[in-house]
Design a protein around this nucleic acid. Sequence first.
DNA 1: ATAAATTGTGTTACATTTACACAATCTATT
DNA 2: AATAGATTGTGTAAATGTAACACAATTTAT
Lengths: 233, 233
Amino acid sequence: MLLKYTHDTRILLAIDCIIFGFDGEELKLLLIKRNFEPEKGKWSLMGGFLNETEDLEEGAKRVLNELTGLENVYMEQLHAFGEITRDPVERTVSVSFFALINIHAHDSELSRSMNGYWFNFKDKPDLIFDHNKMVNMALSQLRYKAALHPLGFELLPEKFTIPQLQKLYEAIYDMNLDRRNFSRKIISTGLLIDTGEKNENSATKKAMLYQLDAEKYKNNFNDFHNFISDFKW
Amino acid sequence: MLLKYTHDTRILLAIDCIIFGFDGEELKLLLIKRNFEPEKGKWSLMGGFLNETEDLEEGAKRVLNELTGLENVYMEQLHAFGEITRDPVERTVSVSFFALINIHAHDSELSRSMNGYWFNFKDKPDLIFDHNKMVNMALSQLRYKAALHPLGFELLPEKFTIPQLQKLYEAIYDMNLDRRNFSRKIISTGLLIDTGEKNENSATKKAMLYQLDAEKYKNNFNDFHNFISDFKW
DNA sequence: ATAAATTGTGTTACATTTACACAATCTATT
DNA sequence: AATAGATTGTGTAAATGTAACACAATTTAT
């Protein structure tokens, strides 16, 4: 392009990814131990700079893919962070995205080679720059949306049991839910298909394995629900 | 700063404001008839470029203030728009904000001098670039949040009646609400203080004027409500 | 005084949510 | 093979919240 705006403040655009996972018990976060400057040796979110050839969503997908090898992941833009001094090297505005991934499906060797480590959300270390703020906002947003829309499934394997789903919600909201009421709420969405199989990894009664009704999930994703009606916001 | 990142894609950052108002009957949008290039003569959102000396929120406040003269306005970051070709002049990433203002409190001469005009939301003209997308997203977000949190008050004068508030909600959601049930829901929030005054601008029974309990509003803003339980999302 | 419009409050039926009980399934152990 | 211990699936009554509707009070214009 030849003609340009005369305004002269052009800024580096960073992309940072808040990557959530779930191991069956705890809500997890994928973080990077930085082996590069600045803040080498400290913990941070996975990030990168936006390239000329990609838009924000493409950039976010690229950054996520570089760490996890995954594609077609649930990602949502969270917020643009623009404090002037948020990056000590140079003014940088960061657009953050949060991703929900099936923790067992990602390329763990790739992520380890990038110095990626999973933390229990509750045990996350202190992070560089404004990344703590990003992570806290991401949890708020996850809680907000997961109470109203069926996001949780994104963190589980393709086939899952209702008790597993409940443990996930309990981890997200850090509270206990009534088994029977939770089950009824989830089933009443009509999003679950009984696979006829049972969870063999159980020392007691084997729970029924469900999978998502992909069509209904897609069409009804924006329906309002009330999965966690008694959470104190 | 001397040391900088070697990554060389630095980008213009725009700020665009979706400004909502309410005139007592209709949800309104404040738009600009551009007397500058590009797209001179067409309609757009009020916008500007981010300066070196301000962060995103400051930039958004400045842009809003330049058009309306207002300060201390309810603003919320909406979304960062980053399509490569969204601006034909030069690649620009826009961070959009939506604002809720009391339409009677702004500086209408200033806004007119900037070529600002109020439109009924339903009658808004076609906008430049991706501004239509921004406006649609802003309405979705306004509906989403206003159903769950007490935002609506931001669009009303300091003292208002419950029927006025109801008309506002009916405009936002483009639907009719039951007068009696709405009243009960709003009152049950405990956010309203009876001023003892009555709305004199009425040819029939004068409605009671309320004002917000500022303290409770601040403390309970994030409480979940269910003002519009039967809206079809 | 009365009509027409609007506002404030009440009441009942219906739906949803909560709290709690019991039977069935599975493994490990006797 | 019988039993204990843990977990899962389903049911049900009480409490709460929502929806639908009725009526009386207020105000201005006639």
